[in-house]
Design a protein around this nucleic acid. Structure first.
Lengths: 222, 222, 222, 222
DNA sequence: AATGAATGAGAGTTCATTCAT
DNA sequence: TATGAATGAACTCTCATTCAT
């Protein structure tokens, strides 16, 4: 009935254990199939303990989405911090996103199911990421780095590309077709978790879309 | 376990009634929250009747995804039948897709949840649509209509764009932000169910991505 | 609502088909697990047809027990018809009983479950067989063939021996232990469906019980 | 699926209450007709509580058979502990068995239905009892107390006799025919729960079968 | 702070039986 | 005579949540 914020270090630790267990269980089973008892089992705490820190299963869900959202955005901005061009930044950001996806499949799976569980959490999640894109695109446009596109539409399009390519090549893996050539450890820092040539092609696609003449297809100069 | 194919016209009609009710209930509540009894209530049949025609709730789900997939692909190919260029075809196809989404929100909502319900159905759904894109792109490339892009990566990117734009502007609607300017009846034939300028911008994005100089950004002539 | 007696030859045939199917399905699954639809499926008739000939599933059960009871008693009396002594008759009767059990496992399985389904049918079944034993024992006692035993108690004891030995060696088979030596075809006429030495030992047991000096154990004459 | 062993005294008590209620409900209705809700109603606990301690209705069944089997064997061996001859032991054992049957009719009814519910439990039940008989018979034969019979066959025969006599005179009671003469309280210690003369006749039968001349029929002295 | 015990609402599914054709 | 369609009651089982300790 009353989820409290932990008052002691021990309590804080217990709370974190539950949150971590939840990430794994949700990633494995999805929100619906994941039961509170499974989460507490994995966390190694009693079932009643759960309600000491979370008001409900849904509350936990919202917190988890919030948490993952914060972390994926941080990973993306850290990943693209050293980039000098917009396209470089985009590439680095996507690579970080794919790496995060590989490490935290819960992000995908939980978010995809979220529409029926917590629509607001879902919208907030996407919107926040898109806002980052928009800011970057507006800056790039002001700098004359990209063409005269609508940043909002482009941002949602980029979001969609990232989600679908991520689903196809990170979650499903190469086993889904005969492409082969997957990197050995998709979570290793500096790699992208999707085959290099897929990332290449994806960036050519995006480069053309964003209107950098140097990236357009037929070789004619701008 | 004892699902049979209807042997009489009456049976066939009942089966269709259930399928239609299911589409609505799934669209409203998602797979998990939708209960068999809710579906049969809406269909106006007894609960036991359900199991005359479907082996399980999951079986119904698979049939529904299959059905919607067939229909959305047909709508897309019919929508783009009269196009003379690849870009025209792409635009018409997306417009048809958005229209279908507006008319059948179940497609979206059910598919997004499918990952935990019936992963195979999910993959098959996306893969089939993507295959259509790939075929079109390969043809366009052979005809010199588009640049030298990887059709597979591009197809998945296009799929992602359509899904995300559709979610943002068709499912969420304009209420999601202050853009305004929504068409009166998003399902009316000939309209696209997303604001016209969003479709325009989206096609500029895609045109650039696919590498037609005439569509590239910086104002240089084709 | 109204089970009718068949009026045509075709109807009679349908009825028999259902009864035969029921015997097999009951033998395989028992009364509770056997469903009417499974029986009609096996019989190759529609589900509604069932109620043309049987008032209910329970009615069918009673008829089947009655039918099997009639047949097993006939098999036993036919089997022992040529016997010249009571013990010979007993042995031949048991052999026939075991053979019938091997051919019609439904007898056992259905009867064992009958206590909760149709107690009267169960009692009638056992009582009728026991009555046969009693009559034979009384005759034998009058003829001085056996000792001065209580025919009723002895008859129930014999019934129990037959049932348990049948269950152990006919239904469970030799696989239940390492005895081996099972006859090749337990249903072949003239064989007993239980290993010969088991029948031998069983008859030695019964012979002693019934008090025929020649059959008693320690070899001392009467 | 999540059945646990109680960790507190309160839990242990609840578990026992369910087990006891189950014995009564099973005895009254048999396995199939007995529903979990009827059992929990009788136990005075919620339906969900059942699954705290038993994985399924079948699991409970197996535990109950196991429990009854252990107790009936203990009753039999306690009952025959003071016997000085094999026949005395046999008689005391049967009397204990009948008494147990009168007190715990569930044993019979549940076991008879078990063939379709839990065949392994059924076999185990009979086999364990039979093993006790075999051990006793082998000892008696070694001691020269009984004739040269096959202990295995004899043991199963004895099992059958006990089961059938018990069914006829304990479960059905004297009402089944006009014999009369039933003991006042069939569960009173020291009585046998079947009419004395039935036990007498049954033991004469068995005595003859096992081959002690003193027990054979025709009146010759031992 | 922590937890095992307890619960009842609700889920999916089966099935004997009735009925219109 | 024959049948497929239809049904609703009843079943077993799950689970988020509350509570006493």
């Amino acid at each position: 009935m009353t989820a409290t914020t932990p008052r002691t270090a021990r309590g804080e630790q217990t709370r974190r254990r539950i949150l971590e267990a939840a990430e794994h269980v949700f990633a494995e089973l999805g929100y619906t199939e994941a039961s509170v008892s499974r989460i507490t089992d994995r966390a190694g705490v009693g079932q009643g303990t759960f309600y000491l820190y979370f008001a409900s299963k849904l509350d936990l869900f919202d917190e988890l989405v919030e948490d993952l959202n914060r972390r994926v955005r941080q990973a993306m901005s850290e990943g693209s911090a050293d980039a000098t061009t917009r396209l470089e930044a985009e590439r680095a950001g996507f690579a970080a996103f794919f790496r995060f996806t590989a490490e935290h499949p819960a992000l995908y799976r939980v978010v995809r199911e979220a529409e029926f569980v917590s629509p607001d959490a879902l919208r907030l999640h996407y919107t926040r990421i898109v806002e980052g894109y928009i800011a970057g695109l507006e800056q790039a446009r002001a700098d004359g780095e990209i063409g005269d596109i609508d940043p909002t539409v482009a941002a949602w399009a980029l979001m969609g590309i990232g989600e679908m390519i991520g689903m196809r090549w990170v979650l499903w893996g190469d086993s889904a077709n005969g492409e082969g050539g997957g990197d050995a450890d998709p979570t290793a820092a500096g790699t992208s978790a999707v085959p290099e040539h897929v990332l290449d092609e994806m960036m050519r696609f995006i480069g053309g879309a964003l209107g950098r003449p140097g990236w357009s297809m037929n070789g004619e100069a701008s």
